[in-house]
Design a protein around this nucleic acid. Structure first.
Lengths: 203, 203
DNA sequence: GAGCCTACTGGCATTATATGCCATTTGGCA
DNA sequence: TGCCAAATGGCATATAATGCCAGTAGGCTC
């Protein structure tokens, strides 16, 4: 006999799942801004008040797993392999998190990302959350290369890495998910490795 | 006799200036979220309805000059000098826009940026607007190096450049404006030029 | 099983942002 | 002077978000 989760916990999880599913469905059907919290609550057979207890804000529905992803990313960054360069580590961690984020069916992920991309407020929110990933990168880079100005340079490197990855993500989303993600990440880290060297030729 | 601006235009400009000044003052005095549009309107001797006619949203007050800065940045990017590499051009344009953005007294700019940094929604909004700068960079980079995949690679490069610059800006703001901005930009472009080469050594 | 405690829920009120609509005022011009 | 267009203000409304309180239901003790 396995230890079953208490009924109360199961109910909470179920309420959360139902709210999330209702919100995602309505966002996809009618768009984000055309969907009110009241509609979501009604579709999930709950009150708006309950919705806000679970998600805090309307857009939290779309980013509620953010902390998990950041934690997973940090864990990956901590699991450096024998002989693995920092660039390879970052490449591997990025690929793993992206794969996790997309899940089995990329279409749903793409559509949700397209919603995010189409609503400025959501784009901003996501960019703001992306700072957490950048911070994680900065920490591992700083630990890798100590010295004077190490923290500043680590932040700059992390900014460049995260910025290029965001650009790659935008390219992927705007392609409707058609691009191959592994190739995209390879191109991203190739550009980062070359740096701006290619821009320094005489004009 | 010079052609004077019509009275109506002068009044509009004045209303806008008064609203902006009132908003900035109240944000600095009481913080952003503790300040309501109603308070701003009252301080500017206008109605809240008028405020929204000029700024659209409450946070527009803090970003209302964004389009000007982007236009100035684009113009700078278009004014490439003899023998100037693309990296140098980007460095020069960035320095010029930053200097313009800060103006005579850096303290006010720093304080406003600290307000932005302290309110997640504002941080997100600024990051979202920064995409316009990134886009401008991507265009000039793409024009510089045509070829297959040029646009994608240009976007990735632009993402890295913009990301590193955002990191530099955050570092500057969190230092309270103590850091020397020119040195900071030099460090930023130095990191970008080196790329992740430094991260590719054997561990 | 009875009773109590705690946590989840729902409803109500309230605040603030934001928008549409209409009447009033005011600048610009014939 | 008188008309037109633009700017303004006030009102109503929708929505997001939060605090408060009462009701409900799970979980635990005796």
């Amino acid at each position: 006999m396995q230890e079953r989760e208490p009924l109360r916990e199961r109910k909470k999880r179920r309420t959360r799942d139902v709210l999330f599913a209702a919100a995602a469905r309505l966002f996809l059907e009618q768009g984000y801004e055309a969907t009110t919290v009241e509609q979501i609550a009604e579709a999930a057979e709950a009150s708006p008040r309950t919705f806000f207890r679970y998600f805090g804000t309307k857009d939290d529905v779309l980013f509620c797993r953010h902390d998990e992803y950041v934690a997973a990313f940090r864990q990956l960054l901590a699991s450096r392999r024998e002989g693995e360069t920092l660039a390879k580590l970052l490449r591997r961690a990025a690929g793993a998190v992206v794969a996790d984020l997309i899940g089995d069916d990329s279409r749903e992920a793409v559509t949700l990302q397209q919603i995010v991309a189409s609503v400025p407020a959501l784009t901003g929110r996501q960019l703001e959350l992306d700072i957490d990933f950048e911070e994680a990168i900065a920490e591992v880079v700083a630990a890798h290369a100590p010295g004077p100005d190490a923290e500043l340079r680590a932040r700059l490197v992390a900014g460049a890495v995260a910025g290029a990855m965001r650009a790659a993500e935008r390219a992927w989303v705007s392609s409707g998910g058609a691009d191959d993600l592994d190739q995209l990440l390879d191109a991203t880290f190739s550009v980062l490795a070359e740096g701006l060297a290619g821009l320094d030729e005489e004009p």
